[in-house]
Amino acid sequence: MTSIDVRDLTKEYGTRRAVDHVTFGVRPGKVTGFLGPNGAGKSTTMRLVLGLDRPTSGTATVGGRPYAELTEPLRHVGALLDAQAAHGSRTGRDHLRALAASNRIPVARADAVLEETGLASVARHRVKAYSLGMRQRLGIAGALLGDPEVILLDEPSNGLDPEGIVWIRELLRRLAAEGRTVLVSSHLMNETASFADHLVVLGRGRLLADTPMRDFIDARVQPHVRIRTTDAGALKAALAGHGHDAVEHEEGHWTVTHARVDEIGALLSAAGVPILELASAEGTLEQAYLDLTATETEFTAPNQEA
């Protein structure tokens, strides 16, 4: 009931196609990372889901209905699109009170989300005195105001300090654990890897991937074993004897692909190779993403639009 469903969605601005026949679903109970470079169509897709922009063709629904048909939508869907949306001369609390009133949400909720986002102490300060990170928190507070089952956040980590980044990560995990549908756009790979369960990747308006994050990485990046030794000759000989191929790197360590760390460890120990470091290296989201984009020729075109 609370899924976001995007079907064959297309949005053209003049001759530019910002979103190009995109189809995907966002399911409850997990955090879906919405990835892509700037200009890939992430924000446009979110605006289309929220009924703010009119699609050229295709549909976007929340819980099976177009957003615009929801009564008191903030009670079902919360969104952060732009941290600058709050008027600078209004206090954070008044900003949320106005938002709450439109959907008959009690004022107590405004105070609750100010508390939850760490803004209680500046609730009665004017927004123009807020840092970018505080404005992001206010935007997130607005998204949480109606206690919605569906949450869309566009680049929520923007401007947050390290403490804030840890906070948003834990918040997103918690919201998903509560069974909510969470869609979070980002162009930061490491950040997204820290909270996402599922990935939807856009490039130049087109859908490039819609898979669980683990599958996305494993399909593109080989796990490998990382080794440092004082006796390179013995290492090479021992590995070669078991059919492994070691590659030396400039930093002085070696990597072995298509191998597991417990196998390599036992093998080197039996051969008496002196080991300084032995580690299993998992593929990262960043590696997998770069692998994906390298195969998408349009991405590497020199005049990519920002």
């Binding site: 009924g51 703010l52 957003y67 048909e69 439109s102 607005g142």
Partner: peptide, 18 residues
């Protein structure tokens, strides 16, 4: 005009789609 600054209108219309 305050609604046409910094995406305020989007927030307003997300709250009130009518």
């Amino acid at each position: 005009s305050a609604e046409f600054q910094g995406g305020a209108l989007r927030l307003s219309l997300a709250a009130v789609p009518r």
